[in-house]
Design a protein around this nucleic acid. Sequence first.
DNA 1: TTAGGTACTTACCAAAAGGTGCATACTTGT
DNA 2: ACAAGTATGCACCTTTTGGTAAGTACCTAA
Lengths: 129, 129
Amino acid sequence: MSQDSSTPTCTPTLPGFTCGLDATLRVIAGKWKPLILYFLAQDGPTRYGELRRAVRDASDKMLIQQLKELEADDLIKRTDYKEVPPRVDYSLTPLGHSLAQALVPLCTWGTENMADVTRVFAQRAAARR
Amino acid sequence: MSQDSSTPTCTPTLPGFTCGLDATLRVIAGKWKPLILYFLAQDGPTRYGELRRAVRDASDKMLIQQLKELEADDLIKRTDYKEVPPRVDYSLTPLGHSLAQALVPLCTWGTENMADVTRVFAQRAAARR
DNA sequence: TTAGGTACTTACCAAAAGGTGCATACTTGT
DNA sequence: ACAAGTATGCACCTTTTGGTAAGTACCTAA
């Protein structure tokens, strides 16, 4: 359908990644990262507690850990207001913002195909018995 | 930036998912699934061995396992030609095809931001010492 | 005859991911 | 005085994920 059948990767071959998708996936690997990015893209700077309630199944430990990684990867920015009852918020960097944009179609797909996805999960659950 | 701050999820609240993105992520969770889908979207029906060589870091065990799950989830179709030296190929179902389309922006993002991604990974590696 | 390719399967093990619960230090509301 | 909210940190443990290496049954080329 495309290319010459010899090196069937999606882009020639990059540094350590097989293709752009591979690179992206390694950056957003982590149970909550895409959700965090997407949420921040919608609601702008958000305080820790608010994020916690939004991504409601994540534990503190996990959420903090993923936030730290996203920050280290320059996808989000942490702002500590140094106030007495702690106040901190998180916002997207330009890089994080562009990545969040790329997640939009996935969200759309999930919404549009909710019926199929739900069915698939029902089957998975049934299969486990 | 949007909505009313009370229920800050990306879509009201679905069956068991917090939003469409959540649903999608659960379907494509698995180290090689997005890569498999994306590859099949580009090259059409592909034999097992070819897939193996394309997704080159995956072991047989992993690849087979993920293929089985994708098949169970109705994202790909397995065709066994029942020939003597085994011949089998995999192709996308309509559902799988639409999901693969939603992955395109992620691939593009990875390619366009390869420099940043590479830097991020260099830092991660350095931080581990 | 022997090596290699086909598409898997299974058993065993290591590493990574993730959950629970407790602790901090200070403030505000009851 | 006491509970609750604020944003974490840490220790411990279980679950999930993924890798290695072996085996299967049959075929073809050297």
